[in-house]
Every structure is written in structure tokens, then in C-alpha cells.
């Protein structure tokens, strides 16, 4: 379990995260959403142990990430947005690095590379950005860590690759893994992320599962105007309107509309989902 309490972090005078608190439970695929610059990457690097919290604490299975103890590092893999090309063939890189994560499997790596249509014999510094990203994604999934953190994994992937990524993500992660994916390409990961965390400047606006969201909010796709809609938008084929779900009806969550609704009515939504 990842527990974040009262976390604050600033770059110099610029305060990026302030008093952030939330928990992440095991076995789920969390989506971390937020506008650009709101601190998603900062938060991820803090959880990974690349930075130290200035105020507050982060505990991953009771350990502080910044200590970077091997017993912590072995259970986590951080995949950054921009990955470094190295002078190795993909397969050699995987073999060499894989030794450090006890659950790594070279077979899995090859399987995933194949699924992503990527050649393991190619040298990584001779790959395109997309191929390089796919190599790291394959490695990350092949490590089968308890915690997998991905920052914008679909960035740099072409459209077919995004679908392959979704497949690989669901196929090669187990119920024991907790995955945290930060993205602003919501549509790439629409049906995969559950629960959803929405981060705003210095605040967590939402941390709820899809089921909880549909219980509290109703997504109306008809063209009849909804009074008191939290958010309304014309989309191809009709409209999408978000309102409070008083009747307990079921609907399909539209994540982009959710995002906008939450941003337009921050306090209302926060109160709705505030759990004790």
C-alpha cells in the first residue's frame, strides 16, 4: 500500500504540491490525471524515491522511497516519460538489468516485445523514439514488480502501438501489482484505468473507482438539456452532460467530461466523494 500524507514539495519558491494526501490500494490500475504542470511527474518521482518530500511523508509498504533501500527498489519500477537510449541491444539490456528484479522473466520480455512488434535484437541507441519507449515498456512489464509507475507511457507511441500497450498492460500485470499511470492522453487509457485520481494545483480533487463515480455522478448522452449539469459539451453524435446521480442510474463514465466537471466544481465534487 502507498500512503501519502500531507505531502508538500517546491522547486525553489514555486510550490508544486501542497498538503497532498491519499492512499493507493493494492492490485489496482490507477490513472493519475491533471493538467500540464500540475505536478504529476513531480509526484511520481517522489513516490519512486528520486526526490525527497520537503514536508509530509510517503510510505510504500511502510518504507520511505527516498532511502532507496534495495528491498524497496526491488519492488518498484519507474518508467519516465523520456527514456534514455543506451548502447546495448534491447535483449542484452533486458538480460543485464533484469538480474536486479527478482521476478523478472526474459521470456515475458520477449513475449511483450513481440506483442508490441518490436525487435529485441536491435540496438537501443539506433531505435526510434517509439521503439525505444516500447522496449522500456516491455522491460517494465517483464519485471512484474509489485509497484509499477509509468509517466505518460503512451507518449511517443503510434496509434496501433497504443492498442498493443493496453493489451500488454492488462495481460502481463497480475492482481498483486499496483500500477500508477499518469497521463493526459485520457482516451488512450480510457477503459483501463480504475480508480481515477485527479490532481490539481496543490490538491487532490478526486480519488475514486469507476464504480464509485457512476454511483455519484450520472453521464447523460441524450440531447435533452440537463438542468444543473456540472458540465455540458456537444460531441459528435450528441452531447455529454454530467450531473449528480440522484436516481442511482447506471451510465458510462466519460473521463474527459468527468475531468472538466471536476475542475469546474472542485469543492462540490470533493465533498461528494469525501470518504471518512
Amino acid at each position: 500500500m502507498i500512503k501519502i500524507e500531507d505531502l508538500s514539495f517546491s522547486y525553489g519558491n514555486y510550490e508544486v504540491l501542497k498538503g497532498i494526501s491519499f492512499k493507493m490500494e493494492e492490485g489496482k490500475i490507477y490513472g493519475l490525471l491533471g493538467e500540464n504542470g500540475v505536478g504529476k511527474t513531480t509526484l511520481l518521482t517522489l513516490i519512486a524515491g528520486l526526490k525527497a518530500p520537503q514536508i509530509g511523508s510517503i510510505l510504500v509498504d511502510g518504507k520511505k522511497p527516498y532511502d532507496r533501500q534495495p528491498s524497496f527498489l526491488e519492488n518498484i519500477f519507474y518508467l519516465p516519460d523520456v527514456v534514455a537510449p543506451v548502447r546495448y541491444k534491447a535483449i542484452d539490456f533486458a538480460k543485464d538489468r533484469g538480474k536486479f528484479w527478482s521476478k523478472f522473466s526474459l521470456d515475458r520480455f520477449n513475449q511483450i516485445m513481440q506483442l508490441l512488434e518490436n525487435d529485441p535484437q536491435r540496438r537501443m541507441d539506433k531505435m526510434s523514439l517509439g521503439q525505444l519507449k516500447k522496449t522500456y515498456i516491455s522491460f517494465a512489464l517483464a519485471c512484474n514488480c509489485k509497484y509499477l509507475i509509468m509517466d505518460e507511457p503512451t507518449n511517443g507511441l503510434d496509434i496501433p502501438s497504443k492498442a498493443q500497450f493496453r493489451k500488454a498492460l492488462t495481460k502481463f500485470t497480475s492482481e498483486d501489482s499496483t500500477i500508477l499511470i499518469s497521463t493526459h492522453q485520457v482516451r488512450d487509457l480510457e477503459n483501463i484505468i480504475d480508480p481515477i485520481i485527479i490532481l490539481d494545483k496543490q490538491d487532490v480533487l478526486l480519488n475514486a473507482s469507476i464504480q464509485e463515480i457512476t454511483e455519484k455522478l450520472y453521464f447523460d448522452y441524450s440531447t435533452e438539456v440537463v438542468p444543473d449539469a456540472l458540465y455540458a459539451e456537444m460531441i459528435p453524435g450528441g452531447a455529454i452532460q454530467v450531473r449528480v446521480n440522484e436516481e442511482g442510474l447506471e451510465s458510462k463514465v466519460n473521463i474527459e467530461a468527468l475531468f472538466n466537471a471536476v475542475h469546474l466544481h472542485k469543492d462540490v465534487v470533493k465533498n461528494m466523494f469525501n470518504k471518512k
Binding site: G49, R68, L73, F100
Partner: peptide, 10 residues
């Protein structure tokens, strides 16, 4: 980052 997060002790 790769170096720091490689699972080995300091």
C-alpha cells in the same frame, strides 16, 4: 534516475 533506482544498496 536509472542508476539511482537500480536495485542495489548505496
Amino acid at each position: 534516475s536509472d542508476f539511482l533506482l537500480l536495485p542495489a544498496s548505496r
